[in-house]
Amino acid sequence: MEACDETIKELSSIYDEESMDTFVSLYFDGKDNKFIYRREEAVMAILKGEELENFLKTMEEIKRFLGKKFAGNVAIFASHKHGYLKVVDIPVKTKNALIVDSSPYIRPLAELTDTWESFTLVLLNTNHARIFSVSCSRIAEKKRLSAYIMNKHKKGGWSQARFQRLRKGSIHAFFVEVMEELEKYASENIIIAGPGQAKHEFKSILPKRLQEKVVDIIDVDIEDEHGLFKESMAVMAEKEMEEKRDTMQYLKKEILRDGLGVCGVDEVVEASRNGQIELLLIEKGYKLRGWICENCQAVGKGTAKDCPYCHGKTSEVDVIEEIIEFAERTDAKVEFISSDEIKNLGHVVALLRYK
């Protein structure tokens, strides 16, 4: 599976230049096949001509994929007209949805990406270590290391003190080897886990740039992978919530002093179209009916038969989805939050790169 952020950026840049409804976005749990049939019937009753023909051929391609070995919980973005088919495995139960539009519907995927922040996990004791990469809650083992470390001192040989020095030296050499491998895979967040003092000793030898990335140290048995993954996910979820609360407080201060913070749909739409947004914060689950001009790409709330700026033809859209797509195309960070604060600020808030 590709990194979630890269996938979303790719999807946000794709659209039908004629503004025809030629992209099918399917979020499917793999269980309710009747759901797909019901949505197909509804869509076929509305589409006509080239759009209908494209939809039928696109659904054939999607069904061919689903007919293969398929475990469920997947997002499929496809268009026969554009020769496009993108499959994204989803690591948690997804809400079924089938959307036909002029571009892929990325909001559920964006919300998932925001929920599961990537991190690197190191599980070790004095002679065994495993390095995992966790992205979109998918866990991939990157490296497994081990070393022979003598645990008992045999009588009649080395002195106890010499034995301990040699043992410490062997452990340190092993930790250095693990550190060198960690540098190859380390993300912006690192969790170190394992039994006893080994994990604390390992952190102490890390260079400052890696120590600053350590989010938490977890005490866990070296064999308890399930417990480790569950606890590490909880640690990252709490970290994410704290960061969002801090971000909200910072944005409120920026808005109060008329700085780089903006709030409300109208201001955020304008900023997203201009590529000004550095960070976009959206109320989770909030949608807003609106329109987009097929000619100049202007976006507005409510309904409009013609664009008020260039008098071009308009299409009905979810304004929030359009804001997300504009933001993703310009490398803005997109986050979702549930709070009364963001609701009171107009459901969307943004930190600008410039004014």
Rank of each mutant, 00 (worst) to 15 (best):
K142Y: 02
T22K: 09
P195R: 05
F119A: 03
D258V: 08
F163C: 01
S159F: 03
C310V: 04
E283L: 13
I292W: 02
K69A: 14
E201L: 12
G302H: 04
Y37K: 13
F28P: 10
I149C: 09
G67C: 11
P108E: 10
F28G: 11
D219E: 12
V100G: 03
E231N: 06
W116A: 10
E212D: 15
G264W: 09
R167V: 02
P91E: 09
D5R: 14
I255C: 10
K63H: 15
N295W: 00
K355A: 14
L352C: 13
Y15V: 00
A173W: 01
I90H: 05
D101E: 07
V265H: 02
K48M: 08
K95V: 07
I218W: 00
S12R: 10
Y84C: 12
F70M: 14
S315H: 05
L288Y: 00
E141W: 05
I99K: 10
K313Q: 10
M150V: 10
L351P: 01
G30Y: 12
Y105T: 00
G67K: 12
K95F: 02
K152W: 00
Y354F: 15
S338P: 00
S146V: 06
F229G: 06
N96V: 04
L52S: 12
F326W: 12
L352N: 07
L166W: 01
E40S: 05
N125R: 08
L11F: 06
V319K: 04
H311C: 02
L109K: 08
A327K: 05
A234W: 00
M233K: 13
A71K: 15
F326C: 11
R329Y: 01
E278L: 15
G264M: 13
E53S: 13
V299C: 03
A71F: 13
I149G: 06
F174A: 10
D5A: 14
H172I: 11
S118M: 06
G156S: 02
K93T: 08
N189Q: 06
Y250W: 10
C307N: 01
F202M: 11
M233N: 07
E283H: 08
E240M: 08
A97T: 03
K31I: 09
H80T: 13
R289Q: 02
D224P: 13
V265I: 14
A147W: 02
D216Q: 05
K31T: 05
I222H: 01
A45D: 10
F175Q: 10
R245Y: 04
I99F: 03
M150N: 02
L228I: 08
Y105A: 00
E267S: 15
S118H: 04
T22R: 13
L121T: 07
E41I: 05
S146G: 15
K333C: 03
I99C: 03
G312N: 02
G261K: 08
E40V: 09
H311V: 02
